[in-house]
């Protein structure tokens, strides 16, 4: 009875209907990142009856997540449960029919090359541009749609990338900004997360139920606090010379383009080097870091150094970063994306 009726209201919605519901049940969605955006997407898709979800995240649950990451509980914080494990447990309570693959891994090129071809599409719920540009290239290579989504403070932005049709993220972005404006420096309010996810999941439902004419085709952004809503028709920005979607060179899948890490022997330190394409905006980064009162900041013309929790982070002008206080590469990357961006 429960099984027969649970999707009834969604099937009453004409563009989905019985056929659309069946398509959802046969679908496989990959969600990269299970923080705020990923938790919300995963819950909506599990409730909607998507057959298989693959959740990817390298992190565990912390207290500061609870304000907006809806699948997690205080118990998960106490147990330091990996996010995808905590998410899977909660999602199975919500819908036992959903098949959930929980991957406690860093979403790099090698990992996504295996996972993405098995799925219908990818939802971007990451916290950094390095991973997004890898998703962008992998999805072009394997002809999978992906839905960019990101938010910070009360602002959010989203765009659906369809291979061979729309511009890709590489076409739209003239450079990769790194100015330290992250959820851990300038903050985030939960409604901004939910608004991005509302757009992302609606686009996912349209694709999976084969209602492609209903897709927005627009770059959508909003600032909930400033009461602003922007929609740009960006089709004209599809770049015929784009190395990702036009030339099919997939530059972000190359070894040189990836974030490089090295554990510095005997120093309890991890060094992180980014691709040359990334521009470090030193002064903005300093300004954003100063806003977080838990951060002790020091700078000179050559480097910026700050202490947060048990870590000391040193960012050089060329973007090279040292994370002191850990030998663990995953832990260092997490700190890097939280505070450097």
């Amino acid at each position: 009875m429960l099984v027969n009726n649970r999707y009834h209201r969604q099937m009453l919605f004409d563009p989905i209907g019985e056929t659309g519901q069946k398509r959802l049940q046969e679908s496989h969605v990959v969600i990269v990142g299970v923080g705020a955006l990923g938790s919300s997407s995963a819950e909506m898709l599990a409730r909607a009856g998507v057959g298989t979800l693959t959740l990817i995240d390298r992190d565990y649950v912390e207290e500061t997540n609870l304000q907006r990451q809806q699948l997690f509980s205080e118990e998960d914080v106490r147990m330091q449960t990996p996010k995808v494990i905590a998410a899977k447990k909660r999602l199975q309570e919500i819908n036992h029919l959903t098949n959930i693959h929980a991957e406690v891994i860093d979403a790099g090129v090698d990992e996504l090359e295996v996972i993405v071809p098995q799925a219908n599409l990818v939802i971007d719920a990451t916290d950094n541009f390095d991973t997004r540009l890898i998703i962008n290239d992998i999805c072009q290579k394997h002809h999978k749609p992906w839905i960019y989504g990101a938010c910070v403070a009360s602002y959010g932005v989203t765009f659906t990338v369809l291979p061979e049709e729309t511009p890709c993220l590489q076409c739209l972005m003239d450079h990769i900004p790194s100015d330290g404006a992250t959820c851990d420096t300038v903050g985030i309010i939960s409604p901004a997360v939910q608004m991005v996810v509302s757009h992302q999941v609606t686009e996912v439902l349209k694709i999976l139920t084969e209602n492609l004419d209903a897709l927005s085709g627009k770059l959508i952004a909003f600032d909930l606090w400033k009461n602003q809503q922007m929609e740009l028709k960006v089709a004209s920005l599809k770049d015929e010379t784009c190395p990702s979607c036009s030339k099919k060179q997939y530059p972000h899948l190359a070894y040189q383009a990836q974030l490089k890490t090295a554990v510095l022997c005997g120093r309890n330190t991890v060094q992180i080097r980014t691709s040359a394409e990334k521009i470090i905006h030193f002064d903005e980064m300093k300004k954003h870091l100063e806003r977080n009162q838990h951060i002790k900041l020091f700078s000179n013309p050559y480097l910026l150094s700050f202490e947060i929790d048990k870590y000391r982070v040193v960012v050089f002008r060329d973007g090279r970063t040292l994370i002191h206080g850990t030998k663990n590469v995953q832990e260092a990357k997490k700190v890097y994306y939280q505070y450097v961006g």
């Binding site: 990923g38 719920a125 916290d127 990101a150 938010c151 932005v157 404006a181 740009l232």
Partner: peptide
């Protein structure tokens, strides 16, 4: 009209113009 970046300098602004500006962010 969507402007490519190289057009920003040569595109004049006048009274009553309507602009939409969307920037990319990385959080999530």
């Amino acid at each position: 009209t969507i402007l490519k970046k190289e057009k920003h300098k040569e595109t004049a602004i006048s009274e009553g113009d309507r602009l939409e500006i969307v920037h990319f962010v990385g959080g999530g």
